[in-house]
Design a protein around this nucleic acid. Structure first.
Ligand code: FES
Ligand code: FES
Lengths: 143, 143
DNA sequence: TAAATATCCGACTAAATTTGTCCGATGACT
DNA sequence: AGTCATCGGACAAATTTAGTCGGATATTTA
């Protein structure tokens, strides 16, 4: 269960946009270079993030992408949800509308999925891009 | 990031084997019926679990499958590892040998993956099949 | 106005994974 | 001998992954 490159590349890209927040747009080319992501592929990923309302774009020369909201307001969970779908082990714990196992004995794995789901979301829904940036800064200071 | 049916079916099957532990082998057909899993497909999954040393088999009439070790000794994590591969968001936190991002600035997502990885493993490596069985029993008692 | 920059959109693809199905061989019990 | 059940491998449709490419559009700059 390794995440796909969508989520892995996408979060790296969002980090770069977070760093740049408040300083105007940054083109994909720069992000792709800095994070070592195929530029043409990143184009597709950022389109998903744009449609999810996390990123906005400025076309033309000197254009590029910016975060729609500030890094404090965007969680890792929001980014991963857009790119990877629900970060849950099973549909039934991701979506209250989703069908549940209808076995006579009840579902024997539901409790496990719930615990895993809670522990994942406890991390990704509380961690913001701003937190990531701060962590990075303090890890560089230590050197 | 929903788990595949491998992990979801497989854990259900292991639960049934855990229930049966100490009472001789149980055929796949029964497990498939009880948990509503395509029998022919489950055959493939149990082969993986057998090769992983979690399950052993008895061929012939009155044969079937049994747990190799007791339900207290088998964690959810061991089952999911066999069926889904490493339960980590990225290779680099799953395997100490795996290559790390070698960017001048260091990897900006590593910390996030580590936190997610720890929170997942905190659940799945401490929860045993025996725990699942106990949870199920107490949830039935409450009715 | 022309050129350069950069997003936008859709098409296309190879490879891998998922989610099974099916069949014949083998082994064990009655 | 017949039945039960695992074992092994082949096959395959559908989906996802991980890109690549080309052309259209919008904006700035020279
Ligand atoms: S109710 Fe979700 S796996 Fe059973
Ligand atoms: S070192 Fe693991 S994602 Fe960068």
């Amino acid at each position: 269960m390794i995440l796909s490159t969508k989520g892995r590349y996408g979060l790296k890209a969002m980090f770069e946009l977070g760093l740049q927040y408040g300083n105007g747009p940054i083109p994909l080319k720069i992000i792709a270079e800095r994070q070592n992501i195929p530029e043409n592929y990143l184009e597709q990923l950022i389109a998903i993030l744009r449609k999810a309302g996390l990123v906005k774009s400025v076309r033309g020369a000197q254009g590029g992408y910016l975060m729609q909201r500030s890094p404090e307001e965007v969680t890792v969970g929001q980014v991963l949800l857009a790119l990877e779908g629900p970060m849950a082990p099973a549909e039934c714990v991701a979506d209250p509308e989703a069908p549940k196992c209808k076995l006579a004995s009840g579902c024997v794995t539901r409790g496990v999925w719930e615990k895993i789901n809670n522990s994942i979301h406890n991390v990704i829904d509380t961690m913001t891009l701003q937190n990531m940036i701060e962590d990075q800064v303090s890890s560089i200071e230590k050197e």
